[in-house]
Design a protein around this nucleic acid. Structure first.
Lengths: 221, 221
DNA sequence: TACGTTTATGCCACTGAGTGGCACTATGGA
DNA sequence: TCCATAGTGCCACTCAGTGGCATAAACGTA
């Protein structure tokens, strides 16, 4: 009896789920999202459309599973993390990075890249991806309010911090996906750290007009 | 001959467009978004479904028009604004505030509140709303890169600044929509300023654990 | 007033996503 | 061996969204 081995029924269910994800990423990438019908996908996986919708809430959902795994781990981690008196923003960043460390499933990085590129190319997938980020942000906010000491329940700062975290994540994902070579989790971690480091500068960055006029007054706050 | 009076054809088109928006906001609010079919809406406005889709890209779009007007004005304003050596973030905030000043159409504020509340209550509308923000962000980023002097074209800071602006806007919108009484543009402006002011603090906000440390105050909300 | 051109609209048939209902089968427990 | 239960397949249905083509209204011109 293996503890890490759930009953057969669940294993089977998980296998069809993974087959749907892999086949969907493959078909969507090769043929395009809209040009691939669900009937086609279900036929390829030998599953009824009804079964598809028992596993995923909509057509977009199946292709976003890899990224969703990361954010689920983020929320798990956030539920147990120790604040230890450092800025919330910093803690959120570290929480995301340790969630990333947990993404050890085989080929996860490759699937995330496929998923992201599809989202970038498909309006409706982009929309659903953003919606997922939004719902995750709210869930995280609830955890933060529940576990940490925040005087004013209407304080907008925690929410902004989470939004900024997500914005940085998406930007880092974009950078990482455009790298050449096989995608690796370590590289994503590096891109995340770089992007996090750029956050404070985004509030103070000063720009002048472009080329026609010379910069009248460079950096001053 | 009135200069501010476009040809009859365009006026008619605009009128059906506005009728669709107003009727949609009304029906969606009263009956719910999903429980209102497009056939129903088109029947009420006495327009064919084909005409609906010539005016709006999808069912969600019609209910987001009021907010889209604001962001269109924001982009217009951004195309002509003078950077004058202040931080980009500050300039973006002021640009949005002056775009807001231009929203003088009758009942605009009320429509925005309806629109926002619908988005908050309807997952697919929320998703499309976020997608619209994202596309607007990209458009704004293109303008910023085109008009202002940014050394590195891959600099993530302008993008982050825009994302933060949008996050603050959405948060301010939420606060404003929950106010009691008739919604006013001035109140939205005030909520925007408040939220903008909270941005720097969101990066440095420090939190401790909830119940254990502080005085004997039980952890009930 | 008569004319052609342009532009918006109506109508109709069609694809495909997503749902509800019910019967069927495989798993796991007694 | 039998039964309860979870998961699946099948079928019919609703409704969003599209393509094509004919029509009508608006505008310019003679």
């Amino acid at each position: 009896m293996d503890a890490a081995r759930p009953p057969l029924r669940e294993r089977k269910k998980l296998r069809t789920r993974e087959a749907l994800i892999d086949t969907a990423l493959d078909l969507f990438t090769r043929q395009g999202f809209t040009r691939t019908t669900l009937d086609e996908l279900c036929y390829a996986v030998e599953v009824s459309k009804r079964t598809f919708f028992r596993n995923f809430v909509n057509k977009e959902d199946v292709a976003m599973a890899p990224t969703q795994d990361l954010w689920a781990a983020f929320l798990d981690e956030l539920r147990v993390r120790d604040p230890d008196g450092r800025p919330l923003m910093e803690m959120l960043q570290e929480t995301l990075l340790s969630a990333l460390e947990r993404m050890t499933a085989d080929g996860w990085a490759s699937r995330v890249v496929l998923s992201r590129n599809l989202a970038a190319a498909t309006p409706s997938m982009n929309a659903h991806g953003l919606d997922f980020c939004d719902r995750t942000t709210r869930a995280a906010l609830a955890i933060v309010h529940d576990r940490f000491d925040i005087a004013d329940p209407d304080d907008v700062r925690p929410r902004l911090a989470l939004d900024i975290l997500v914005a940085a994540f998406n930007k880092a994902l974009e950078k990482w996906a455009s790298r050449s070579g096989a995608p690796s989790r370590a590289d994503l971690g590096a891109d995340l750290r770089d992007t996090f480091a750029a956050i404070p500068g985004s509030l103070t960055l000063t720009v002048g007009p472009r080329s026609p006029e010379p910069p009248a007054r460079p950096a001053s706050i």
